[in-house]
Amino acid sequence: MTKLTQWLWGLALLGSAWAALTMGALGLELPFPCREVLWPLPAYLLVSAGCYALGTVGYRVATFHDCEDAARELQSQIVEARADLARRGLRF
Protein backbone atom coordinates (compact mmCIF):
# COMPACT_ATOMS: atom_id res chain seq x y z
CA MET A 1 0.00 0.00 0.00
CA THR A 2 1.45 3.34 -0.98
CA LYS A 3 1.44 6.36 1.27
CA LEU A 4 -1.24 7.99 -0.88
CA THR A 5 -3.69 5.09 -0.53
CA GLN A 6 -3.00 5.02 3.21
CA TRP A 7 -3.88 8.69 3.50
CA LEU A 8 -6.92 8.30 1.27
CA TRP A 9 -8.16 5.36 3.35
CA GLY A 10 -7.65 7.26 6.60
CA LEU A 11 -9.42 10.34 5.24
CA ALA A 12 -12.30 8.24 3.87
CA LEU A 13 -12.67 6.49 7.21
CA LEU A 14 -12.66 9.75 9.16
CA GLY A 15 -14.99 11.36 6.63
CA SER A 16 -17.52 8.55 6.75
CA ALA A 17 -17.44 8.51 10.55
CA TRP A 18 -17.96 12.27 10.55
CA ALA A 19 -20.80 12.05 8.02
CA ALA A 20 -22.51 9.25 9.93
CA LEU A 21 -22.31 11.18 13.19
CA THR A 22 -23.46 14.47 11.67
CA MET A 23 -26.35 12.98 9.74
CA GLY A 24 -27.40 11.04 12.81
CA ALA A 25 -27.27 7.73 10.95
CA LEU A 26 -26.23 5.87 14.09
CA GLY A 27 -29.28 6.98 16.01
CA LEU A 28 -27.18 8.50 18.79
CA GLU A 29 -28.64 11.36 20.75
CA LEU A 30 -25.60 13.59 21.11
CA PRO A 31 -25.84 16.54 23.49
CA PHE A 32 -26.06 19.96 21.85
CA PRO A 33 -22.45 21.15 22.48
CA CYS A 34 -21.06 17.93 20.98
CA ARG A 35 -23.13 18.40 17.84
CA GLU A 36 -21.99 22.00 17.62
CA VAL A 37 -18.36 20.84 17.79
CA LEU A 38 -18.96 18.05 15.31
CA TRP A 39 -20.17 19.84 12.23
CA PRO A 40 -17.19 22.17 11.63
CA LEU A 41 -14.64 19.42 12.30
CA PRO A 42 -13.47 19.01 8.65
CA ALA A 43 -12.79 22.75 8.49
CA TYR A 44 -10.98 22.47 11.82
CA LEU A 45 -8.85 19.62 10.50
CA LEU A 46 -7.99 21.65 7.42
CA VAL A 47 -7.09 24.76 9.43
CA SER A 48 -4.91 22.79 11.84
CA ALA A 49 -3.11 21.12 8.94
CA GLY A 50 -2.52 24.56 7.44
CA CYS A 51 -1.22 25.89 10.75
CA TYR A 52 1.11 22.92 11.06
CA ALA A 53 2.42 23.47 7.53
CA LEU A 54 2.98 27.19 8.16
CA GLY A 55 4.68 26.49 11.48
CA THR A 56 6.98 23.88 9.94
CA VAL A 57 8.01 26.22 7.14
CA GLY A 58 8.63 29.01 9.66
CA TYR A 59 10.65 26.78 11.95
CA ARG A 60 12.81 25.49 9.10
CA VAL A 61 13.38 29.05 7.86
CA ALA A 62 14.41 30.15 11.35
CA THR A 63 16.82 27.25 11.91
CA PHE A 64 18.16 27.02 8.36
CA HIS A 65 21.81 26.12 8.33
CA ASP A 66 23.54 28.98 6.48
CA CYS A 67 27.24 28.61 5.84
CA GLU A 68 28.22 32.24 5.35
CA ASP A 69 31.91 31.72 6.01
CA ALA A 70 32.01 28.86 3.51
CA ALA A 71 30.16 31.02 0.96
CA ARG A 72 32.68 33.85 1.39
CA GLU A 73 35.56 31.40 1.09
CA LEU A 74 34.08 29.92 -2.08
CA GLN A 75 33.54 33.39 -3.59
CA SER A 76 37.13 34.39 -2.87
CA GLN A 77 38.35 31.13 -4.39
CA ILE A 78 36.29 31.80 -7.53
CA VAL A 79 37.80 35.28 -7.83
CA GLU A 80 41.25 33.78 -7.34
CA ALA A 81 40.70 31.10 -9.96
CA ARG A 82 39.33 33.64 -12.45
CA ALA A 83 42.37 35.85 -11.96
CA ASP A 84 44.66 32.88 -12.36
CA LEU A 85 42.93 31.69 -15.55
CA ALA A 86 42.90 35.21 -16.97
CA ARG A 87 46.65 35.42 -16.34
CA ARG A 88 47.10 32.27 -18.38
CA GLY A 89 45.25 33.83 -21.30
CA LEU A 90 41.73 32.41 -20.90
CA ARG A 91 39.01 34.83 -21.96
CA PHE A 92 35.59 34.58 -20.26
Partner: peptide, 16 residues
Amino acid sequence: DQAVGFGLVAVSLIIF
Protein backbone atom coordinates in the same frame (compact mmCIF):
# COMPACT_ATOMS: atom_id res chain seq x y z
CA ASP B 1 15.56 34.83 8.53
CA GLN B 2 15.19 34.03 12.21
CA ALA B 3 12.75 36.89 12.76
CA VAL B 4 10.62 35.89 9.76
CA GLY B 5 10.72 32.20 10.66
CA PHE B 6 9.76 32.60 14.29
CA GLY B 7 7.19 35.18 13.22
CA LEU B 8 5.59 32.56 10.98
CA VAL B 9 5.65 30.04 13.85
CA ALA B 10 4.04 32.59 16.18
CA VAL B 11 1.33 33.47 13.63
CA SER B 12 0.49 29.82 13.08
CA LEU B 13 0.33 29.17 16.84
CA ILE B 14 -1.91 32.19 17.39
CA ILE B 15 -4.27 31.15 14.59
CA PHE B 16 -4.36 27.58 15.91
